[in-house]
Design a protein around this nucleic acid. Structure first.
Ligand SMILES: [Mn+2]
Ligand SMILES: [Mn+2]
Ligand SMILES: [Zn+2]
Ligand SMILES: [Zn+2]
Lengths: 146, 146
DNA sequence: CCAACAAACGCAACAATGTTGCATTTACGT
DNA sequence: ACGTAAATGCAACATTGTTGCGTTTGTTGG
């Protein structure tokens, strides 16, 4: 399992056209194994607890940036303003559909509805991503509230 | 207009059950006058450029926290992980149109485009709010990047 | 395999944003 | 006016993220 995962991460990194280093492989493995997006601190802890040498703080930041830059990881900010990273391969593609976010339980539900076309932007603005998020109570939380 | 706004902020703060201080009135006025959510730094600049004495950094943080705690302001994180504040009373002005969020400077821009109709929700889900957020680079940040 | 070179790394310093402790001042009910 | 809890100003600190630079390493062409 470990060998398979490592090989896979290695291949992904090489295919992305960047150097395959031990740090990148370990970080991408960790992101792929994670059940949820991890922040820098969580990754640092997790990599330190492994028996290999721990990564330098700055190197970890740069590895994460490089994985994001080559499309192998996704970066998003959490409610506290901390960046969290997830493996692009381990995650569904959430870029092309609508989400419902429950304001009570925090759950995110993928809706089977396509994104509406974006309106025209002011001159010079560059669109990179569209988020159509519906917020409210999910069925479970709505029932509990009533 | 200034007197009206100041009186209104004063009343709102008093009605919220907290002490009416010059700092709270100035900050709430600034939030109400703003066309987009402001971060701590933007508020500090704006309050310093007025001819009154500038607020202490920490006091501004605490004023913002107190306005949020008593429901007069809303706090949300921007794409860079920086907290932005808006007047709760001004929120209704942003519920019916699309926003563009710059991933570089964190700025929020109101677009003159109506929200698309929401797709059908799963049974039991209760819709309370619709966010159609476009993300990317604003004109200024896009120019600087190029 | 070797050498050359760009990329990546480790370390220190720095920057941006936000918090805590504490002495002093202020708002406001009495 | 007075007493008191709340708010303020200032210094120090914490957390998260970035920059500069000399050293090491992965990769590639010979
Ligand atoms: Mn999804
Ligand atoms: Mn931050
Ligand atoms: Zn829910
Ligand atoms: Zn911008």
């Amino acid at each position: 399992m470990a060998a398979t995962t490592a090989a896979s991460s290695t291949d992904l990194i090489r295919a992305a056209g960047v150097k395959v280093t031990r740090g990148r492989v370990r970080v991408l493995d960790a992101l792929n194994a994670a059940r949820q997006p991890l922040c820098h601190g969580e990754l640092e802890l997790q990599l330190a607890s492994a028996d290999e040498a721990s990564l330098d703080r700055v190197t970890l930041y740069r590895i994460l940036d490089s994985l994001v830059a080559c499309g192998l990881a996704l970066k998003a900010v959490d409610t506290r303003g901390v960046f969290r990273f997830s493996a692009a391969a381990a995650r569904h593609r959430h870029v092309d559909h609508v989400h419902f976010r429950c304001i009570d339980c925090g759950g995110v539900f993928c809706l089977k509805a396509e994104l509406p076309p974006p309106p025209k932007l002011p001159r010079g603005f560059r669109l990179q991503q569209i988020d159509f998020d519906l917020r409210g109570l999910c069925a479970e939380c709505g029932t509990r509230a009533a």
